[in-house]
Simulated scan of single mutants.
Amino acid sequence: MSDPQREIWAGDPLLLTPEEAARVLRVGRTTVYALLKAGDLTPVHIGRSCRLSRAELERYVKQLEARSPRTPNGRRRTSRGQNGVLDLIHNPPDGT
């Protein structure tokens, strides 16, 4: 069985369509367009065509890896900023 991601990289295309980039990143096409709009991914425009370089995808993934907080045991945290959530459950602000 062939893997679409490997097929894309096998020919080493310099630029990928947003759809191809989505398959490589294993996200939806809409997510890639949202990342482009937010400025997280920088496209290459050739005429009216929008493409993403392999180097840009690698840069984005490395940026994500650098931002991911890790716990002392090396695992990534799955939640952030929820330190007081359980306190609110046990001690509601209205005193009940």
Rank of each mutant, 00 (worst) to 15 (best):
R59E: 05
W9Y: 10
L64G: 04
S2H: 15
Q5P: 01
K37E: 00
E20T: 00
L52D: 06
P72Q: 08
G81S: 12
E19S: 06
H90W: 11
N91K: 11
L88W: 06
V85F: 05
R29H: 11
K62H: 09
R29Y: 07
G81P: 02
L57H: 05
I8Q: 06
G74W: 05
T42W: 02
L14G: 02
S53R: 02
R6S: 12
S79Y: 09
E20R: 00
S68T: 15
S49A: 11
T30A: 10
S2C: 00
R70Q: 12
L52T: 08
P69K: 12
G81Y: 12
I89N: 04
G95H: 10
P92Y: 04
C50V: 15
N73L: 09
L88Q: 10
S53G: 09
D40W: 03
L35S: 01
L64W: 12
D87P: 02
R80T: 11
Q82I: 01
S68F: 08
K62M: 12
Q5A: 02
G47T: 14
A21D: 11
V24W: 03
G39T: 12
G11D: 13
A38R: 15
A38G: 10
A34E: 12
L25Y: 08
R51M: 07
Q5V: 11
P13T: 09
